[in-house]
């Protein structure tokens, strides 16, 4: 399990407008590229340094590659990160205000307390 890395993917994509669009259009390709080229970047650090050990578990890679935010919730991805990024990608496809957010809640309606742990 690499919940931290799932959060890191959501965080780094969310803060880059180009990556938001790229992930929307090509989730599988973007996840594969990111895991191979970006997953080990040390973020708030000098450039040129990197970690060596970070990779997704298969179910995490699959959930990200299919935009499956229900599965991401189940895996304990930070709900704020998932919500923020998915609003950026998909709110535009809904005419009614908050239409996407309400559908998002509905699709998670099978979850009851306690929710999956989000600690990293």
């Amino acid at each position: 399990m690499s919940r931290y890395l799932v959060d890191k993917f959501l965080y780094t994509v969310d803060r880059d407008p180009e990556l938001v669009e790229r992930y929307r259009e090509d989730p599988r390709g973007t996840v594969a590229w990111w895991e191979s080229e970006r997953a080990n970047d040390l973020l708030n650090c000098h450039s040129g340094e990197a970690s060596t050990w970070l990779r997704f578990a298969d179910d995490e890679r699959d959930a990200l590659s299919t935009h499956d935010y229900v599965r991401l919730f189940e895996l304990g991805a930070h709900p704020f990160l998932t919500l923020t990024l998915f609003i950026a990608m998909f709110e535009r496809d809904y005419e009614e205000p908050l239409g996407f957010q309400k559908q998002y809640a509905e699709r998670l309606s099978g979850f009851t307390l306690p929710y999956p742990d989000i600690a990293t």
């Binding site: 709900p79 809640a105 509905e106 099978g110």
Partner: peptide
């Protein structure tokens, strides 16, 4: 609630 089933009620 943010990113959960009870959001935006």
């Amino acid at each position: 609630e943010l990113g959960g089933p009870r959001q935006f009620g």
